[in-house]
């Protein structure tokens, strides 16, 4: 159960992992996520289902190393098994024909964006995708995204690849030149916040996918709560996608930092144990 059948690194800290999970593979849709727990002492972390194969009974996740659990996951090999996987969780993305849709993905946010781009295209939209990263190595899934989009723009902060500039510069360029009916932004909170300030200027309805801290993922704990439109929402069951203009970004970012100290200490400790083993 939950066997890793394939692992491919996109860069030093980002890898695609294909996992056997037949029940979820059958039912999952774009926008869904899973919660995994690697081993007996592991924590439960949410990961978006980037792709799936019903016939093979597999799901694909793209994982970025940011702390202990993501590092442990990336250190697992093909053939090894993940202890627990539960899903699909959250609401699937509401896909309809809108006209021109601008999709922007930052960092590992490109992974959850991929199935959405695919579905939007299939529904008959013109899809223009902006991929952004600090530097060339952090641009992932470029070929796949080019394949599913009508047009692809790559932006790097340092200009090492594509155009030099932030994701918002790429978005502006598109909005200036043609009518955009809808935008989808997925990436670090700060990127989604500034991206949605850009689309707001032009009154373009914008959807974001929030990646708050979670425990159960079934609406039972409230760890994932964030204020949307002045009301407290549970991201795992009410989201993860929300109207970007309603999200209280400063609260969202504050809540994501709740365990910063513990996470940092845990990661340092993990690195030390890895070193001793090596």
């Amino acid at each position: 159960m939950n066997k890793i059948v394939e692992k491919e690194f996109f860069s030093e800290n980002v890898a695609k992992i294909v996992i056997e999970s037949p029940d979820i593979a059958i039912i999952r849709k774009a926008g869904h996520f899973v919660i995994i727990r690697i081993d007996e002492k592991g924590e439960r972390i949410p990961l978006t289902i980037a792709d799936g194969d019903k016939e093979k009974g597999t799901i694909t996740v793209v994982v970025q190393k940011v702390g202990v659990t993501s590092a442990k996951l990336l250190a697992m090999n093909e053939g090894e098994e993940i202890l627990d996987i539960v899903g699909p969780l959250g609401h699937a993305t509401h896909i309809e024909k809108k006209g021109t849709v601008l999709c922007a993905g930052g960092g590992v946010g490109v992974a959850p964006l991929m199935p959405i781009v695919k579905a939007l295209k299939k529904a008959g939209n013109k899809v223009i995708t902006v991929l952004a990263g600090r530097t060339k190595e952090l641009i992932i899934l470029e070929d796949e995204m080019r394949n599913y989009s009508d047009e692809l723009i790559v932006m790097t902060d340092d200009g090492s690849y594509g155009k030099k500039g932030l994701v918002t510069a790429g978005m502006e360029e598109v909005i200036q030149r043609e009518k955009v009916n809808m935008a989808v932004l997925i990436g670090p909170a700060i990127m989604m916040k500034f991206g949605s300030l850009t689309t707001k200027k032009y009154n373009i309805p914008t959807v974001v996918s929030l990646n708050t801290i979670m425990v159960d993922g079934t609406g039972m704990c409230g760890a994932c709560r964030v204020s949307v439109g002045g009301k407290t929402k549970f991201v795992c069951v009410d989201g993860p996608e929300f109207d970007a203009f309603q999200v209280d970004w400063s609260q969202m970012m504050m809540r994501m930092g709740a365990y910063k100290m513990q996470e940092h200490e845990a990661y340092e400790k993990y690195l030390r144990t890895v070193e001793t083993v090596a």
Binding site: V215, M220, C221, G222, T232, Q251, M254, R255, A258
Partner: peptide, 16 residues
């Protein structure tokens, strides 16, 4: 202020 860090539902606190 109920969404500040350090404020848990009992479910979250006990589950953790």
């Amino acid at each position: 202020g109920e969404n500040f860090n350090g404020i848990f539902s009992s479910n979250e606190y006990l589950t953790r």
